[in-house]
């Protein structure tokens, strides 16, 4: 018995020693992973990316990068898209707006003030003027990068990465022309917070040509009926669900929605998108993403694509 106690004591001491060792090496900076951008994922063909997008039954999770890799390049820049391609991201979310003279460009805000060296509303400036400007980095300083046109962006994405074209619904005729010109119609997802009747009326001619994804706020009183309308009329490639609380009962239906053929997209961006299971928490503890996995969510839009991909890979849920 005495020996047994001593053994326990020493084993404990040994374990403490190991722990101290580990902390020390972290403090010395040895355990910090080296440049993560170097480690490239296996390239996936566009056919398999599209097949995975259409398939709501497999266990592969689609990672969507919000505004491109905005940490390491200006948001909505070609470099931010290229970084996502190199990182093995499945889909890049970009924002499109139209200039006064009808050019489609990538820009998140209504104005160019925050992200470029110029000022003014996109809709009130010319493409010629925008070409004279530089994009700013995350702390607001100018970079060598320029504002891309939608055409340049789609040409870069062509055959390499799926695209979610945000803010495109109201200017979709023009966006579709560019998608046809660049032969990227089949790799772009359009979305809108709109019930089925309205989409059919406004967008009907495109519904069998492009991927349309309805956005549904799950705390909205009509949420369930909006979902059911889509499921009965025309099952979409995916639903984007906004989940303010993780106690909302529709979460229990995610599995059956996927069985019916629609993927389930939830943003990990902000706590109000996912009942508090957000990227900032995941950056400290990647098991935060277990909530998505456990609730059958198979498309995740993130501000932490690298951490999410690494975590999914460790669970064999990403190529």
């Amino acid at each position: 018995m005495k020996n047994y106690l001593i053994a326990i004591t020493f084993t404990g001491l040994f374990m403490v020693s190991c722990k101290q060792n580990k902390t020390a090496s972290t403090a010395a900076g040895e355990e910090v992973p080296a440049s993560t951008t170097r480690e490239m994922s296996l390239p996936m063909t566009m056919d398999s990316l599209i097949a995975n997008l259409k398939n709501s039954h497999n266990n592969q999770v689609i990672v969507v990068a919000h505004r491109g890799d905005w940490r390491n390049a200006p948001e909505n820049s070609l470099q931010a898209i290229q970084n996502c391609i190199d990182m093995g991201v499945d889909m890049v979310e970009i924002d499109v707006r139209q200039t006064k003279d009808g050019q489609l460009v990538l820009m998140h805000d209504n104005t160019i003030d925050r992200t470029t060296t110029g000022t003014g509303k996109v809709s009130e400036v010319t493409w010629e003027y925008l070409q004279t400007l530089q994009l700013k980095d995350g702390i607001g300083h100018s970079t060598p990068h320029k504002i891309p046109t939608l055409e340049e962006a789609l040409n870069l994405c062509k055959g390499k990465i799926l695209v979610n074209l945000d803010k495109s619904y109201d200017i979709f005729d023009k966006c579709y022309e560019v998608m046809e010109k660049t032969a990227t119609v089949d790799q772009v997802v359009i979305k809108g917070n709109i019930p089925y009747d309205q989409v059919e009326q406004e967008f009907g001619q495109y519904l069998d040509k492009v991927f349309f994804m309805p956005i549904v706020r799950l705390d909205h009183p009509d949420a369930r009926s909006v979902i059911n309308d889509y499921l009965q009329e025309d099952i979409p490639v995916a639903f984007e669900f906004t989940v303010p609380q993780d106690t909302i009962s529709i979460i229990q239906d995610f599995e059956s929605i996927r069985q019916k053929g629609a993927s389930v997209w939830v943003n990990s961006l902000w706590p109000q998108h996912n009942g508090g299971h957000d990227d900032e928490k995941a950056a400290l503890d990647p098991t935060t993403y277990d909530w998505f996995i456990e609730n059958h969510i198979d498309m995740i839009q993130t501000d932490r694509p690298k951490i999410l991909i690494d975590y999914l890979k460790s669970k064999n849920l990403h190529r």
């Binding site: 919000h66 505004r67 200006p74 702390i139 902000w270 900032e280």
Partner: peptide, 10 residues
């Protein structure tokens, strides 16, 4: 806020 003004952090 995070860089690029992407929402506020904790």
């Amino acid at each position: 806020k995070n860089a690029a003004g992407v929402r506020h952090s904790r």
